[in-house]
Write a protein that binds this DNA or RNA. Structure first.
Lengths: 254, 254
DNA sequence: ACATCTGTTCAGCAATTCTGAATCGACCCC
DNA sequence: GGGGTCGATTCAGAATTGCTGAACAGATGT
């Protein structure tokens, strides 16, 4: 992982660079992209017309947008992970019974991706949507996953992505992270106390397969003023653990 | 639309061809892809290692899979369409109150994409998942959309994709389709009586913006033996129309 | 230990992509 | 309605890039 391709196909790299810019700019025209990425207009045009022909982008007047065809690949990749089908209904229930926002995350390439999120009736409105990729060390979900990854994999990931701070409370020190992870292994649950977003707390637990490999993690998150005292330390952790239990049983017998 | 790019970037076409094969084969190795697509092994390897480096595929042992990074693009494209945010909760309610499967579809590049689907407690288990792209003429959802597209756009789409039959009941004749579309415009709802899948019926209605442009369509679908008589002709059509009404109101004031 | 699968590397030829300048088309403002 | 501006599109030649087969390496099974 994280290896450089020896004979990378530059055009493929370029194509995705353009798609990323299209996403970042929320749609753009040839000239705008040309400036933004410092490619000649004609080059941008070649790529965009190829992507348009292949139906990966849409053109509205003279601005191009990322097309929903990507949802075909994305949703496919998601249902391919059996954890999704199994965990989704349980995460829905978790959201419903706690009233908060419940999440399912998996790790790929050293980052966490939200596979599903369910909103309870009091759930906070958050920025991140399904598919968003976040650094593992900055969320309870990610730490729950890290805690059950082989040590050398954790090294690799930290080296690859670093330990950037998002709030004053983010874990940015490797030793401190290791302590945190040990605690998580002990307790079975991970906490995020405003480590990525001020005012947001989160309780997560890893989903393990019967051979001990971590398949992902689930969590409940909400505003600090509502998730506090024994709700933060007891009630929610127990609900999350119960849910994980159900999921793990279903994973085993499938 | 449907135009051929004058100076297409072949490598981009190839990359997506490989991704498609990866999807079709449900994950594959270099040799398998090499045979399947008739490219030299080394070429396949170059592409796959590029896609791996860019984190668009994952490698499990020696087989490659489509990565969930695509969910980032797909979900992004989805929330970019404001119809999604507005219609999603209403589609959820529709599923809950009817107990059946409720859907939201939009058109891009002359095909229909499922943006969302919600399962009621008796909902049928169906093959298609979110992101699946289907031909417009073969579903109630698609016909509801076609009925409100400009005539020349319909011509274009039919010419581009044809009118393939999926069951004996599929509309395959252009004149018949036009009649169907006129009826849909008249009634405001579209029906699919086992036209794409035997045993499955579907009731759909288009979502129109206040300037008359079609933004998408919603539907309820279920088994023919449960969706029949006045439930098929009255009850469900009315529920679907009510839901569209709510959505259209929200579209106007947003 | 051997045979047989895989994936991976490499160097040079061939083909593809890149590019700037010219063209075309839309739109706006006198 | 004409002139100006801004954007997308086309093109053909220069050269960078990607393609390739054969050889290698690594894994797996017998």
């Amino acid at each position: 992982m994280g290896k450089q391709a020896r004979h990378a196909v530059k055009s493929v790299e370029n194509a995705f660079e353009i798609l990323d810019a299209l996403k970042e700019l929320d749609g753009a025209g040839v000239s705008e992209l040309s400036e933004h990425l410092d490619f000649p207009k004609s080059t941008i045009h070649n790529y965009l017309s190829t992507l348009l022909q292949e139906e990966y982008v849409v053109k509205d007047g003279s601005t191009y947008h990322v097309g929903i065809r990507f949802l075909e690949y994305g949703a496919f990749a998601r249902i391919q992970m059996d954890i999704y089908d199994i965990a989704k209904p349980e995460v829905d229930t978790l959201a419903e019974t706690t009233g908060e926002l419940a999440n399912l995350m998996v790790e790929q390439h050293g980052r966490g991706s939200y596979l599903h999120r369910a909103r309870g009736d009091r759930a906070v409105q958050v920025e991140a949507h399904v598919g968003t990729r976040v650094p593992l060390h900055g969320t309870a979900l990610g730490k729950a996953i890290l805690a059950h990854l082989p040590e050398e994999r954790v090294d690799e990931i930290v080296e690859m992505h670093g330990l950037q701070a998002y709030t004053p409370k983010t874990v940015t020190d490797r030793a401190e992270l290791d302590e945190d992870l040990a605690e998580i292994r002990e307790a079975g649950v991970a906490f995020d106390d405003e480590e990525r977003l001020p005012g947001l707390r989160c309780v997560a637990a890893p989903i393990l397969s019967n051979n001990g490999r971590v398949l992902g993690a689930i969590s409940v998150s909400g505003p600090s003023n509502r998730i506090r005292d024994e709700r933060f330390t007891e009630t929610l952790p127990n609900r999350v653990l119960e849910t994980v239990n159900v999921i793990e049983l279903n994973v085993t017998y499938s």
